[in-house]
Amino acid sequence: MKTIIKNIKGIYAIWYREFKVFTRERTRVISSLIMPLMWYFIFGGGMGRVASVGADYHHFIFPGFLVMMVIFSSLFNGAYIVWDKKIDFLKEVLIAPLSRTVIFFGKVAGCMTDALLQAMILLIAGIIIRIPFTPISVLLTIIMLFFLAIGLVSMGLIMGSFMESPEAYGIISSAVVYPLFLLSGALYPLDKLPVWLKILTRIDPASYAVDGLRDTILGVSALPYNINFLIVLAFDIVLVITGTWAFNRMKL
């Protein structure tokens, strides 16, 4: 029992720090909202004229736009572990009498909160611009984004734990962020893609989140929400286990 309390306090400690930083870095929060908004209005405005997706194009891409926010923000947060390494902050955390696993879970909790809060801003914007949400679909959307964030934050932390320089992280993460986003089906339906691309979309956890959200928000999807959710969960399990391993072997 004592150990459990100690570990929960450890996770809370890391979360506390991430959350405080998040609330102070307003420019970062605002600038990270700009990218999805640009895609939504500029790209969506242009493509909406030519695309036929069986629904209003702006409605069609809205789930992808929420998922995009989670992808960008989750992977961006992984960069912070590289900064922490660069100054001695990470040493200060790792020298505490806690296991690396606890530190990893604290990091996931903290970064995930950031990603979700940003997605929530967009979700509220969506309700205001009359995306046909129901209370149930709002709830299911939040749940899906929550579990997607766990996996993607872990992915960012895994990459960050192997890297020494923030610049290298920047390059690698954009090489991961864009495929994750473009293959998620956020902008177009995936069923018309050539086979080799289709295979790639299958290993993109974000594609299941997009599909699941389309089911609950618009009622059009390849797979039902529940199946999509279970697949995202499976990705989470693999990524969290890998992340725990990566943190335990991380050198300073």
Binding site: R17, K20, V21, R24, E25, I87, D88, F89, K91, E92, I95
Partner: peptide, 13 residues
């Protein structure tokens, strides 16, 4: 307890 050579506090906090 440890005081590191390089700054090890979060300067935003």
């Amino acid at each position: 307890g440890m005081v590191f050579q390089d700054p090890s506090s979060d300067e935003i906090l």
